[in-house]
Design a protein around this nucleic acid. Structure first.
Lengths: 357, 357
DNA sequence: TTGAAAGCGTTACCAT
DNA sequence: ATGGTAACGCTTTCAA
């Protein structure tokens, strides 16, 4: 089947001038494969893409490719087709939230669409414009942002025809694709759960005012309380940063305040865990003296010491939806912008309990 | 300073034949910038690279580039220079260990060298060969693997001139660059610490037998014990998978065994945390009745409920070293393969204590 | 179905 | 210092 000898013989490269690059093992190109297979470069290309090739040609090409260890050069493909099959993930280095776990999920989801994921980190959302240049330079097909994107940067991406999807925020002050948990609805569910347990004396550890996720979760809780006739003003509040220490500090402030508290809601699990530890160290028993609940569904929440009641985010589904949103828009550019909200589910643990008395 | 009108005027594209790609906003190329600035493409290229250009030309080019929103096309650069400035991160989807946190650190470290990081996930180390094709296809400059790489795949990468660095394993059954904590040394330090506290009755929750990291940590502990005259055979052992439940299960088996145990070492923090919870639920008090120690330095270990004694990995340094190893090899291809071992430091928490009596 | 050839956007060689 | 131009490896149009 193969040519005589069957051994690899590189096509001689047409280098009229001395070429740029130093040694390095020559990477085999389509032309090499074509030469061995006795077909044209076009045939090689067609074999590795959609192409209409006769079974005979395909076979010869595949055999030659295998022999030479040929793989199409994605950079050259990208240059020509203007599709890199790369999705940029934009994130902040501050990893307080549990989003690092999200990355594996995203990479995995991208895999299913034969897409690659490229990481772009920035220390602060305000510096996003610095990496936008990088992102555009790499001709990525889409951007998935785990952090805020200033309107100006969003506009630049749009003007370059790069899809932008905002991850886990249910709203933005400009038009964008959104893939998020419905945090407000989740807050409402959690609030209703605690109300159903008979709680009336709430306190909250909220998040940074810039975080729409934190705001929405809190708002959802307030929605539920309002329906039960509990005014927002009546709820003591502390502000945290999603981290353990801030949860402790928040709980400390709230529990040493004058207001009676039987239910403490934190807008992240890690803060809730901190709150539980703080309560314990004050001699309060969770859930007998105090119910504590969080949001996210982090693994630590299921540990025996916490058994946290929480609104769990469907991480894999979220990742799938985010990638899929980009992929679909790529396949059909006329598609409208979309917002996909996924529901969180209530995980009832042992950190909440019917109100005593 | 600028040409008359000053407004963007695209260079007409020389499309003799109808071209391939549909609408999409035209991306501006070096030629466009050159036309506006009234210089050659070469001048544009030189401005954006090392190049020797007069201040005058540089200024004009920069102005034109700004006006048009020009950014060099990294794909075209990669095609020509054979340097993509991309590092592939190879990992398994199984995120039991705390390595997801490593990704941000790696991306950040790569940033410092103007390198990008691309993620390649695989469900199982045995499937690595499936992604090797993808990796090579993208012309990455180097591969950093957070998981095992079968020798065959390592060989393929090497034959293509792609640097391979194995992360957090101190040895491999083939020649490779290694950047790792010195897990064995860490094990020894931890063992010595417990011995110094007077412990003689040890038990271990080890890791998967395939994990060199787990093996090395355990071996280090045994090294220390041996020096104190404690035989390895005398130490009861359970096998875990780095996860919380396996830590609990391991502790459960060990604590219900006949052997007396005053010091329990787990080869990961998360297992140690599980062990602490298990001990507690059995009415054992840590550290009074039992000292527990782990490895890694995960954030949860510092939580008030655990205050775990652990050997902390220097994550940022590890990431820096890994990226740097690739970058240096790229800058100087004749550089020899290297192994860089970083030391972990002992974090003494409240989970270990001098042996009672 | 197949092959020839143009061209994607850039860089570095060469000549000026 | 500057400009012209071949080439990087591939895909797709067009013609056969």
């Amino acid at each position: 089947m193969l040519g005589p000898g069957g051994s690899a013989a590189m096509v001689e490269r047409g280098r009229r001038r001395a070429r740029v690059v130093p040694e390095e093992p020559k990477r085999t190109r389509a032309a090499d494969v074509a030469a061995i297979a006795g077909v044209s470069e076009s045939a090689v290309s067609r074999t590795f893409r959609d192409g209409s090739v006769s079974a005979h040609v395909r076979q010869r090409v595949l055999a030659a490719a295998r022999e030479l260890g040929y793989r199409p050069n994605a950079m050259a493909q990208a240059l020509l087709t203007r599709r890199s099959n790369v999705i940029a993930i934009l994130m902040t280095t501050n990893t307080n939230s549990h989003f690092p776990e999200v990355l594996s999920a995203l990479s995995h989801a991208a895999d299913a669409h034969r897409m690659r994921v490229m990481l772009f980190t920035v220390d602060d959302p305000l510096q996003v414009s610095d990496v936008v240049d990088q992102i555009l330079s790499y001709q990525v097909d889409g951007v998935l942002s785990l952090t805020e994107v200033p309107a100006a940067d969003a506009r630049i991406l749009e003007s370059q025809g790069v899809e932008l999807v905002l991850y886990n925020r249910a709203r933005a002050d400009y038009a964008a694709n959104l893939v998020s948990c419905d945090h407000r609805a989740a807050g409402r569910v959690l609030g209703e759960h605690l109300l159903a347990l008979g709680h009336r004396d709430f306190a909250m550890v909220e998040g940074p005012q810039r975080s729409s996720l934190a705001l929405d979760r809190a708002q959802g809780v307030y929605d539920a309380l309002a329906e039960a006739g509990i005014e927002r003003r009546a709820v003591p509040v502390a502000i945290g940063d999603f981290g353990y220490e801030s949860g402790r500090a928040g709980a400390s402030a709230l529990l040493s305040g004058k207001a009676k508290v039987t239910a403490l809601v934190c807008v992240s699990d890690v803060m809730a865990i901190g709150a539980i530890d703080e309560a314990s160290s004050r001699g309060l028993h969770v859930p007998d003296d105090l119910s504590v609940a969080g949001f996210d569904g982090v693994p630590a929440g299921t540990w025996d010491r916490y058994r946290l009641t929480t609104m769990r985010q469907p991480l894999p589904q979220l990742a799938d939806a985010a990638i899929e949103t980009i992929v679909r828009k790529l396949a059909n550019p006329t598609r409208a912008r979309e917002t996909r909200l996924l529901v969180c589910d209530l995980q009832i643990g042992a950190s909440t309990k019917a109100r005593a008395g």
